[in-house]
Nucleic acid binder design. Structure first.
Lengths: 351, 351
DNA sequence: GTGAAAGCGCTAACAT
DNA sequence: ATGTTAGCGCTTTCAC
């Protein structure tokens, strides 16, 4: 069934059918209804490829979930529940606005070409990037071609460095520096000054921010950072298990441990429990993200909530808005985090 | 940049460019390289819509995540982590085979039309349905039009009833009946005979299977099912909280509780804990699905693992295979479950 | 081996 | 208000 057929059956020309489909004003109600009836009767839907080829917008955005793992794991994004909500949020917003979502996963540097290809092949009219390891050069290449993309969790410094302040780029971040400061001040208020950290990945803006804020707060208070209390977790549970085990072997624990994400906080707690070290009695722990499990575990994890859903929603919104209005400007949005006090921190006596 | 431009720059005709792109055999290495060089140089990628319109396969499948909620919740699929892995698995398989994935969410009966539209508009050449509440009529309509779809978790009886055994349909299920029998026999082996159930949704094949298996096992053993020990959880945590609270008010608990999914098992455990009822000392609990949290919580949940990833992978695989081979046959696949014994069940003295 | 030409199903400018 | 026509960028017969 094509527009030609509909036209014949309705006794009009293809143009009129097209006019009806596209809601042109200059077609009388009578004709419109006549055509609509035939369309409904035969369940006609215009061929998308033909429409796009003829000049209509393709109304499709690409969601690129970056999950680069230098390590063993066979691809799959670091299995955190973190990424699951992303897709739903994007799809919801997009659908509401009449857009379709093409989902891709980027597992390696060369997969980045998927983004360019999708644009070049005119499969998508916008892209949204989430995940670890944003490749600035790849991003610059895309914006340089004039294609609109939105990036979630991306270092503003990279934007400066690549002079992308005037380009077609949307950046959405959470205010992790502030969030970290708040969390650490809380734990310091509880009497801690011997505070360790499980770091994330410095290739990630959020990872970097959280670590830098830690250093900043410690310095501000004049507390010294012991190198052996900096555990490199890379946002990964597996890496964290090892690091925490090493820490325990030292026979000298910090009184509090700030984990740069909840997954690592969980991993640490597992190890501590196995080793008979009590949380929070023997050591206080703070996480970051507030993933669903955080509130369900025992003891419930004190953490910093990142409004991931809101961020992704905003990114999608801005992206589509930019596409529709054909804006080609730089936009940036920062979301505040929220400190969530639960049961893994404890007041200690100042020594 | 279009094939015309490439042709001119390479000093050949559009047809030759097309032959190179599509890897036709009858083009000499020399010409091929000449054209390829220009293509590479200008980063040319053929326009997808044009290709499809000209007769190429569109290599896109639609993933429809059905999340129908009769209740309050504002859309979002019952927030279980259950659905997150779906998308990744589908995308992975599809990408590997050179396919693209268009993701949709179905929140209500009328959203079902999205599927038809996607097919009719030639956006997709295959569909995969996951989630709750499969609408048999909608499915039949699609297969009747000759469009290939794969459905995960779908009642074979529905297929009979709608005479879809000869249609272009792929069905992938897990063997929940057997899984439930195994789990219940385990708990019975531990000495329990007063076993309650938190049911799922009977609109779901898996929900129905799990409940029927429960009835079957209880009857087989001659244990009576007390109506007040049948809690209707609808796979939802919220519903479960209420049901379990009601149960506790009875002042008479079963010695064991079989939850039709892990989410509900978790919810029940939360309530029990709040009420000072110990698991497994006061009541044994078994879940279903083996979601990630199941192993992380305390006590770790005894449950039945459903190989969701494998199932979805298989569904996608079969779907694409069917599309490529232009098969139009019915296919069905059943995956065994796996009983996972952890810490929420306890032996009791036979009374 | 390669080019010319028709056509995929639609939209939109133009003409009436 | 409606029909005619020329593309959109590609693939693919059909000639040569």
């Amino acid at each position: 069934m094509k527009s030609d057929d509909i036209a014949r059956l309705a006794g009009v020309s293809r143009s009129t059918v097209s006019r009806v489909i596209n809601n042109y004003p200059n077609v009388p109600e009578k004709t419109r209804e006549k055509v609509l009836k035939v369309i409904k009767k035969y369940n006609y839907e215009p061929n998308t490829s033909a429409r796009i080829l003829a000049g209509k917008a393709n109304n499709t955005i690409g969601l690129f979930v970056i999950s680069i793992s230098e390590h063993d794991s066979p691809g799959r994004i670091y299995r955190s529940t973190y990424y699951s909500s992303f897709i739903n949020a994007v799809v919801d917003v997009a659908n509401t606005r009449g857009y379709y979502v093409l989902v891709h996963t980027i597992y390696s540097g060369k997969d980045y070409s998927k983004i360019n290809h999708s644009f070049l092949q005119k499969r998508i009219s916008g892209g949204i990037l989430v995940g670890n390891e944003k490749d600035s050069c790849a991003i610059k290449k895309i914006t340089d071609m004039g294609y609109p993309i939105a990036v979630v969790d991306y270092d503003p410094k990279e934007i400066e460095r690549h002079k992308m302040k005037d380009s077609n780029l949307i950046v959405v971040n959470s205010m992790d520096f502030e969030g970290t400061v708040q969390a650490l001040n809380y734990i310091i208020g509880l009497g801690h000054n011997d505070i360790g950290i499980i770091t994330g990945r410095n290739e990630t803006y959020s990872g970097k921010q959280r670590f830098e804020a830690y250093r900043y707060v410690m310095e501000q208070h004049g507390y010294k950072i012991r190198p052996e209390f900096i555990l490199e977790g890379e946002f990964l549970k597996k890496k964290t298990y090892n690091e925490v085990e090493k820490l325990i072997k030292l026979k000298k624990l910090p009184t509090a441990l700030f984990a740069c994400n909840d997954d690592m906080a969980l991993a640490a707690m597992e190890v501590f429990e196995r080793e008979g070290i009590r949380v929070p009695e023997d050591i206080s722990i703070i996480g970051f993200d507030d993933i669903p499990v955080a509130s369900q575990m025992k003891p419930a994890l004190t953490t910093v909530r990142v409004p991931v859903d809101d961020m992704v929603t905003k990114a999608t919104d801005l992206l589509i808005e930019g596409i529709e209005k054909e804006e080609r400007s730089f936009k940036s949005e920062n979301f505040p985090t929220e400190f969530i006090s639960r049961d893994t921190c404890m007041k200690i006596d100042k020594q």
